[in-house]
Amino acid sequence: MKGTTSLFVAGTLALLGGLVAILFPLPASLAVAVFVGWMFLLSGVFALWAGFSDKTIPARGWLMGFGLLDLVVGVWILAHPLAGLVSLTIVVGALFFASGIGRLIVAFSFTGTSTFWTMLLSGLISGGLGLFILFTVPESSPVLLGTLLAVELVVIGSSLIALGLALRKIGKD
């Protein structure tokens, strides 16, 4: 299969996945929560395995402590995916808010340049989204993560298809 064909296939699959997630945001959100739960669980298992099997690891106690915490969080999210959804939504809201504040601070170091307005707008949007998310928990929880996943998949799919078209146009298969 040519590279451009692979890009079209990957882009189409991502785009279709994004459209399905837009149509069914709750199942998409639950899928995100379950995926995150499994990642925490596996991270915890491997960290504990490393801590028990290799006595030469520096700060082995910390590794095992965080591994146990990851394991517990993973099991909890998998056992209570709706509650896990609320927790993950709060984390996403806090990250958006913190990221927005960070960009607002950075924007003022670019006063007088075109970068200032881009960073300012970006910071206001992210900070505002973060506040919106945090003030609408738990109402936003069932659909937020699925909607974010949908948007990301649509953007990725569109960009892969566009890249495939551009490469095909210039003759780079």
Results as ranks from 00 to 15, higher is better:
Pro138Asp: 01
Phe135Ile: 12
Ile101Gln: 07
Glu139Lys: 15
Phe108Ser: 07
Gly127Ile: 04
Ser126Thr: 11
Phe52His: 07
Leu124Thr: 10
Leu42Asn: 03
Pro58Ser: 07
Phe52Glu: 00
Ser159Glu: 13
Val86Trp: 01
Met39Val: 12
Val75Pro: 00
Leu16Val: 15
Ala47Arg: 11
Leu148Gly: 09
Gly127Tyr: 04
Ser114Trp: 15
Ile101Phe: 10
Val32Gly: 00
Ile90Thr: 10
Val75Lys: 01
Leu153His: 09
Ala59Gly: 07
Gly112Tyr: 07
Thr4Gln: 03
Ala50Gly: 02
Pro25Glu: 04
Leu63Ser: 06
Leu71Thr: 01
Ser158Gly: 11
Gly18Met: 01
Thr136Trp: 09
Pro142Gly: 10
Ile90Gln: 09
Ile22Phe: 14
Gly37Ala: 01
Phe96Lys: 03
Leu23Gln: 06
Leu95Ala: 13
Thr4Ser: 08
Trp117Met: 08
Leu30Tyr: 02
Ala98Pro: 00
Ser109Asn: 09
Met64Gln: 05
Thr56Tyr: 06
Leu120Ser: 07
Glu139Leu: 13
Gly123Cys: 09
Gly84Val: 03
Gly84Cys: 04
Leu26Gly: 03
Phe132Gln: 10
Gly17Gln: 02
Leu163Thr: 13
Val155Tyr: 11
Gly146Asp: 05
Ser29Asp: 03
Leu144Phe: 13
Pro27Asp: 02
Leu104Lys: 07
Leu144Tyr: 09
Val36Ile: 14
Phe24Tyr: 11
Phe135Cys: 10
Leu7Asp: 08
Leu78Asp: 01
Leu68Tyr: 04
Arg103Ile: 02
Asp70Gly: 05
Leu41Lys: 00
Val36Lys: 01
Ile156Cys: 08
Thr56Gly: 06
Leu7Phe: 06
Leu42Gly: 04
Leu13Phe: 05
Trp49Val: 14
Lys172Glu: 15
Gly157Ile: 06
Ile170Met: 14
Val106Met: 09
Ile156Asp: 09
Thr4Glu: 10
Met119Pro: 00
Ser53Cys: 04
Leu160Gln: 11
Ser87Pro: 01
Ser114Gln: 14
Leu26Thr: 15
Asp70Cys: 12
Phe135Asn: 11
Leu134Tyr: 10
Gly130Arg: 02
Val106Phe: 08
Lys172Val: 15
Gly44Phe: 03
Ala28Asn: 02
Gly112Leu: 05
